[in-house]
Design a protein around this nucleic acid. Structure first.
Length: 522
DNA sequence: TGACCAAGCGCC
DNA sequence: AAAGGGCGCTTGGTCA
């Protein structure tokens, strides 16, 4: 059963609309009675208010996310994806551009009517059924929409973040919080050391000044990347490397960042579901997906609670084994340590197996890769051919799709022009590497999203998903729920595997541990 | 002054 | 230990 929510209106599809005085209350009643699939233009427009009112729903259909997936599959990548745009297209009306997702937008148009939302839904369901593999795409739509629910909930609940521990860590590394405009003491000391090494003032944040200063000292640099600096013999290098590391911490995850993103002991980032073309999530603020490892010690469970942290081991090669139906690779992927299982094929060395797999999935060509790829091709012909085909499609400007039907972007006009030019081979190979990786990364993202959706449904109250990063999840729950949540993670991984691949010999290990502190999880 | 780009580096 | 692709985010620097 589908039930539309638009503005203040609730419309059971096939029934009649009503405007309850208490929207959240009405949603809750219906959720308890019928557990419908809720349909709305965009989860971010509707769900946060429901969460604010204490209402959670189990399933939804997000029109904008679905439209985006459909348009890409239909070869119409980049057309406006909002429900409003989809509705306009249905009626041959002028199609509005998608609004940039900027907070405090200038225009706040009337929400689409519930009837219009229902029309767009019907059209989308029809288009899904017209696809070559509607069953898989239905799963993709459901998982993507469930992801939107999780993202909104994680934004609402937030990840535990101890502001006092964060402040102590920063003070330890940088010195006390400086007054505005000043560098923290330890950062300034390092900047002074750099200056002393050159014999004059240099802004260590300025690439230009650094390159010039090194040139003056007789050192020619192509860049100031740290791996290049490490090869240079000069007294400025050591303090400069230390400066770079700390400066990044200070500006990216320092006090100012905490002021903006941490409140009430919770870090509340803004996740963007499907924000990466491969289907991985992105963030539009807070940098939740780039938290440095050193910061993990700041993520601590509340007293009486615990963090359940789990990540999928070697997810991408397992996904490739399952997709390609490569018997040999699938057999190795039936083991917990896939690379050790593969090692025999590569002369007994685990490292060689790993390089071969990564090179196959990413298009690597350096070092031993060519030799090892030849082994890969001979021993695991179907897996090898699978990624080769994806690469070839990319080089020829064709589209590729994930297992469930997420579609790669088409090549740009600029690319087509480049390919016919003198540097054409390079541009073609670059896109080949992209599509080669796309089929694997996008399917891995689908597996992870499916896991997330299933796990969400298995969690006992008040356990909460608080973090999701590509192939890793974190749940915050009372101590006495730890075992149940750990079991739920394992069950969700098994179910995600079954949903995507049916019965496959490939295993997808997802080891969950209960920790007090995120830093203790690995 | 604001818009935009490049460099650089964090995460998977 | 890393290799690849993907992203976000900040700073400095340029340009209109």
């Amino acid at each position: 059963m589908h039930v539309v929510v638009a503005g203040e209106t609730i419309l059971p599809v096939g029934g009649s609309p009503r405007r309850p005085g208490d929207l959240a209350g009405a949603v809750l009643d219906l959720e308890r009675a019928e557990r419908p699939r809720w349909v709305w233009a965009e989860t971010g427009e509707v769900y946060p208010a429901l969460l604010g009112a204490g209402v959670r729903v189990s399933r939804c259909h997000d029109l904008a996310l679905t439209e985006s997936l459909l348009l890409a599959h239909e070869g119409r990548y980049g057309e406006p994806r909002s429900a409003r745009a989809a509705h306009a297209r249905l009626h041959g009306l002028p199609v509005p551009d998608d609004e940039p997702s900027v907070p405090g937008t200038l225009f706040a148009p009337e929400p689409l009517s519930a009837e219009a939302v229902a029309e767009v839904l019907a059209d989308q369901l029809r288009r899904v059924e017209a696809l070559p593999a509607p069953g898989r795409f239905r799963l993709l739509v459901a998982a993507e929409s469930a992801g939107a629910l999780v993202a909104a909930e994680m934004g609402h609940d937030g990840m535990p973040w101890r502001e006092d521990v964060h402040d102590a860590l920063l003070t330890d590394l940088l010195g006390p919080r400086p007054v505005h405009g000043m560098r923290p003491a330890k950062l300034q000391a390092l900047a002074d050391e750099v200056a002393a090494a050159f014999g004059h003032q240099v802004n260590p944040d300025s690439v230009q000044q650094l390159v010039k200063a090194f040139k003056g000292a007789g050192v020619a640099l192509k860049s100031t990347r740290s791996w290049e600096l490490k090869r240079v013999e000069h007294p400025a290098v050591a303090p400069l490397l230390a400066y770079k590391e700390l400066a990044r911490l200070y500006s990216f995850h320092g006090w100012v960042w905490a002021d903006q993103w941490v409140r009430g002991g919770r870090f509340r980032p803004e996740y963007v579901v499907g924000g990466v073309v491969s289907g991985r999530w992105a963030t539009s603020g807070g940098g939740a997906l780039q938290i440095p490892k050193v910061m993990r010690k700041v993520v601590l469970a509340d007293p009486g609670s615990t963090l359940i942290v789990a990540d999928a081991a070697q997810l991408e090669p397992r996904v490739l084994a399952a997709m390609a139906g490569d018997v040999g690779l699938a057999r190795a992927a039936g083991e917990i340590d896939l690379y050790s299982a593969l090692a025999r094929s590569f002369g007994g060395q685990r490292d060689h197996a790993k390089i071969a797999m990564l090179s196959a999935m990413y298009g690597g060509t350096s070092g031993d890769a060519p030799k090892l790829l030849a082994v890969m091709r001979q021993r695991f012909p179907r897996a090898y051919q699978f990624v080769e085909d994806a690469a070839k499609a990319g080089e020829e400007g064709r589209l590729v799709r994930s297992w469930l039907g997420r579609t790669s972007p088409p090549p740009s006009a600029g690319w087509r022009e480049q390919v016919s030019g003198p540097e054409g081979g390079r541009a073609a190979r670059d896109r080949g590497r992209f599509t080669r990786n796309f089929v694997v990364q996008a399917t891995a993202a689908e597996w992870a999203l499916s896991l997330l959706a299933v796990l969400r449904g298995l969690l006992p109250d008040p356990a909460r998903l608080v973090f999701f990063q590509h192939d890793e999840v974190m749940v915050h729950c009372p101590l006495d729920q730890a075992e149940e949540v750990i079991a739920a993670v394992g069950a969700a991984a098994a179910e995600a595997t079954r949903l995507l691949f049916g019965s496959t010999p490939v295993r997808f290990p997802m080891e969950a541990v209960a920790v007090d502190c995120y830093a203790d999880a690995k």
